[in-house]
Design a protein around this nucleic acid. Structure first.
Lengths: 218, 218
DNA sequence: ACAAAAGTGTTGCTGTTACACCCATGG
DNA sequence: CCATGGGTGTAACAGCAACACTTTTGT
C-alpha cells in the first residue's frame, strides 16, 4: 500500500488542423524494441517533475516554440504494456498551430500524419491514439474549452474550417448554411486578405472573433 | 529516465443525482494527518493493479454493489501534495445510483454531500473536487457518453430531472417547454406509477427510453 | 378552503434546411 | 474558353421561447 513503485510515462498526442484534417505528430523510434516503428513522443516522469512540466519539455524538444493549449486525456494502465516492467501511460493532448508543421524539417525523425491514416505504430500506441482521437474529435465538434481557437489561431478559409468541422462531427453541411450559421453568431472576422493558392476563385481569409468564440458551444 | 519511482493514488469522485442535486460520496479520515477531515475515497496503486481494478476495489469496499459507469478524469501531479513524498493523483469519476445512498448507514464514516456545499476537506481534495466537478457538470449538460442514463437508472419525476439539469447546465427552463422537448424526442417512458411523496399533486414517474437516449446530445 | 406541486396548449419567433446560379482566377 | 473552387439569397419548415390557468393531493 505504501511504496507503489510504479513507472509512469507521459505520452503526447500533438495535434494540429491542416487541410481540413486532424494531424498528429509522431516520432520514428531509433532503438529496440520497435526500432523503425512510429511512436508517440513521450518520456518517463521522475519524482521531481509535474506532468505539465514534462509536457512542456517533450514539446520543446520537438519544436522550439510554445504550444498553446493542452489537457490530460486517458490513462492506460494494463499490466503488460511493456515486456519486463509495469508502466502506466498518462496521455496529454497538445493543440498547436499547423505552422509548426514546417518545423518538422529541422528534425528528420518526426512527421505529421492524418490521425485516421496511421503508419505502423510501436507498443500499444495505435490503441491509445484511436481511443484518444475519439475524445478529441468529440471535443472539437462541440468546441469544448474553445479548442477551435487553438486549432485555428491564424487565418483560415471558410471551406478549410468547414471541411475540418465536417470531419470531426462526421456530418456534411451545405456551404451557404454553414457560413450563415457562423456569420449570424458573429464568430469570424474578414481579414481582407485573399488566399490565391490552388485553382479557382481566391477565397477570403478569416480569423476567429475571439471574444464571441469563448464559451460558444457548437 | 528509467526508474521513476513515483507513488500513484487513485481517488474516486463517486457521484449520484439526488433531489435535483449532484452528490458526492466522502469518507471521514480516521488517522493523521487530517484526522476527522473529509477526503475522497482512494488507494495507492501497486505495480500489480490496473486503475480500473483499483477503482472497483475501492468502490466495493464502500458499497457492496457494482457501479455502472466510470471514467478517468484529471491528474494532479504537484510536487508538494504530500509532506514527505511525491504522490501523483489520478482521479476516477464513478456514476452510481442514488439508491446506494441508503447503504451509507452500513458504514458510519462515509456520507453524501452536495458537490457545491463541501465540508472541511483534507489534503488538496477541495481543489480536486472543484476542478473535476466542472468537468462532470459539463459532461452531464451535454449528456456526454450517455451519462444521464447512469445518473437516472431508475424511475424519476420530470421536475427532479429538470431541476438537476438546470443545476448542471446553469440555466433555467420553462416546465412546459422542458417536457415538450423531451417528449418530442421520445426520450422518456411513462411508468404508470405516481410519486405521492411530498405535498401537492402526485407526479408521474418516468424512465428513460434507453435506445433513444443513446448518443443523444442535449 | 387553502397551500403545494403537477399537468397542459397556443402563438410568435428564431434558427435550420433545402436549393441553383453567378463570379474570379489559372491554365 | 474551360475547369476549378468561391460567393451569394430566398422560401418552407422545425424547433424554441414566452406565456396562465386548471387539477390533484394533504392538511
Amino acid at each position: 500500500m505504501e511504496n507503489s513503485n510504479n513507472e509512469i510515462e507521459n505520452l503526447l498526442i500533438i495535434c494540429a488542423a491542416d487541410e481540413g484534417k486532424l494531424k498528429i505528430l509522431l516520432k520514428k523510434r531509433e532503438k529496440e524494441p520497435y526500432y523503425g516503428y512510429w511512436v508517440l513522443p513521450g518520456e518517463f516522469i521522475d519524482s521531481k517533475t509535474t506532468v505539465e512540466n514534462s509536457t512542456k519539455q517533450i514539446f520543446n524538444d520537438l519544436a522550439p516554440i510554445d504550444y498553446t493549449y493542452s489537457f490530460s486525456s486517458q490513462i492506460f494502465s494494463d499490466l503488460n504494456r511493456y515486456e519486463n516492467k509495469r508502466v502506466i501511460a498518462l496521455t496529454t493532448v497538445v493543440i498547436t498551430d499547423k505552422q509548426v508543421i514546417e518545423l518538422k524539417k529541422k528534425k528528420e525523425n518526426i512527421e505529421w500524419f492524418d490521425i485516421d491514416e496511421l503508419p505502423k505504430l510501436g507498443f500499444d500506441h495505435k490503441e491509445i491514439i484511436e481511443k484518444v482521437s475519439q475524445e478529441i474529435k468529440y471535443k472539437i465538434s462541440c468546441n469544448y474549452h474553445d479548442i477551435l481557437l487553438y486549432l485555428f489561431p491564424s487565418d483560415f478559409t471558410l471551406s478549410e474550417l468547414q471541411t475540418f468541422y465536417e470531419n470531426m462531427a462526421r456530418k456534411e453541411m451545405d456551404r451557404r448554411n454553414f457560413k450563415k450559421k457562423i456569420v449570424a453568431q458573429d464568430l469570424i472576422i474578414d481579414t481582407g486578405v485573399k488566399d490565391t493558392f490552388g485553382g479557382g476563385r481566391p477565397s477570403t481569409l478569416y480569423k476567429f472573433n475571439v471574444e464571441k468564440m469563448k464559451g460558444m458551444r457548437l
